[in-house]
Design a protein around this nucleic acid. Structure first.
Lengths: 226, 226
DNA sequence: AAACATTTGTCCGTATGTATA
DNA sequence: ATATACATACGGACAAATGTT
């Protein structure tokens, strides 16, 4: 009997991309733990491809900072220091602020309206305590702004950082509070007023504030941090 | 006769890294022209390695935006629109500003002194009209600041953008003027005064100003720009 | 300290898929 | 439209390098 190839492939997707998405997902959701050593042969067998696409995927993950490759030695999942939130949010904040500033000049009222809808769903998710959904809505909100900035260099830089944010979420280092709801609305009003400085300022604050909140929660949950 | 492999390898370096550096250099200096189609086999022969490290190098260059890979079709050097300077400098500016802000709190007087020396060499290069040397000194100046910010996420984002700046230089889209000399000194003084807001503000201005100068030169050299 | 075992880095062959005649 | 030629994506094997007993 001939081998039933492509028995259940919903869409044409390269082995490399499959490997990349799968490994990234495993890292973000914690299936692959920080510091865990990655063996390409094992991964190849697990995902059902050869070592080549695995290696290629790992190199991309290396560039994005999800794994660390030591040439000739091995590859391991990068450690996720919770304090990294202090390192990720500032650059993400200034880039998002820049994106908001640029978007101000070109964003349409239609887009602003749909952003407002997203913010409504975001608010609902927060109220329900569905933090995963909240994070996704929040991500979509900001992604639309970034798209409107129409700058590939900004998009690339931001998307690299975003992956790490999601990962920190799965490590319970990030919380989203209802302060964000009002800030989102304030950004939208700045858009409507074509006030780019204000849009940038609020956008940056919106990201930086998460650092303080992170530590507030840390101190509440733990007697001592360090 | 056996093939004399590694006839002149000064240091142990992987084939992949050699391929990456070489191809990137060729793209930046214009040996490989924008829109030029890249063939793995040809590159492999030219560099003296097999196709695998070539492919791996091309994927990294793809992530960095130097080449564009069309799966199953081919790989080509990305086109370099001179207007891209408008897109690269703003994110680079805000990231460099952030780096300067963070560096302010930790930079030592020794480091400031050596930055001052670099700025002197930068000034000399400008006076001599040696724009390549000027660009390198300028790059080193800012790299030291970035290192002092001690934030890997910022460093990564910046280094991605920096490569494109160098490439634009080779396409005659970038000029450095002596305004930068004073601005560098102003940044150093802000460091000495521990004034992080000022350091950030000047650093950003230092990068953004290049956009205006670019257009000033454009308008001087051309009668009309599109 | 030396030989072993494991894993990585590299090579090259092949098949799938794309563009062209 | 079919067939042809070609480049790419992937697979599997070898060899160099590491660290381990």
């Amino acid at each position: 009997m001939p081998i039933p190839t492509n028995f259940s492939s919903p869409a044409r997707v390269s082995a490399k991309k499959r490997a990349f998405s799968q490994i990234q997902e495993w890292i973000i959701d914690g299936t692959l733990q920080p510091k865990e050593k990655l063996n390409d042969a094992d991964l190849a067998q697990a995902i059902g491809v050869s070592r080549t696409p695995i290696r290629e995927a790992l190199q991309l993950l290396d560039v994005q900072g999800f794994v660390e490759m030591f040439p000739g030695v091995g590859t391991q999942v990068t450690s996720v220091n919770k304090e990294d939130i202090n390192k990720i949010l500032p650059p993400l904040g200034v880039l998002q602020a820049l994106a908001a500033e640029l978007a101000t000049q070109v964003i349409s009222q239609d887009t602003i309206d749909s952003l407002r809808e997203i913010n409504t769903r975001f608010a609902e998710a927060i109220k329900k305590g569905d933090s995963y959904s909240a994070l996704k809505q929040d991500g979509q909100f900001h992604n639309i702004i970034v798209e409107n900035a129409q700058n590939q260099y900004i998009s690339n830089s931001i998307s690299n950082l975003q992956g790490h944010i999601f990962r920190l979420y799965f490590h319970q280092s990030i919380i989203l509070t209802d302060d964000s709801i009002q800030e989102h609305e304030a950004i939208l009003q700045a858009f409507e007023n074509k006030n780019k400085e204000q849009a940038a300022s609020i956008a940056r604050k919106n990201w930086i504030r998460a650092i303080d909140e992170f530590y507030a929660v840390q101190n509440k949950n733990e007697n001592k941090d360090q």
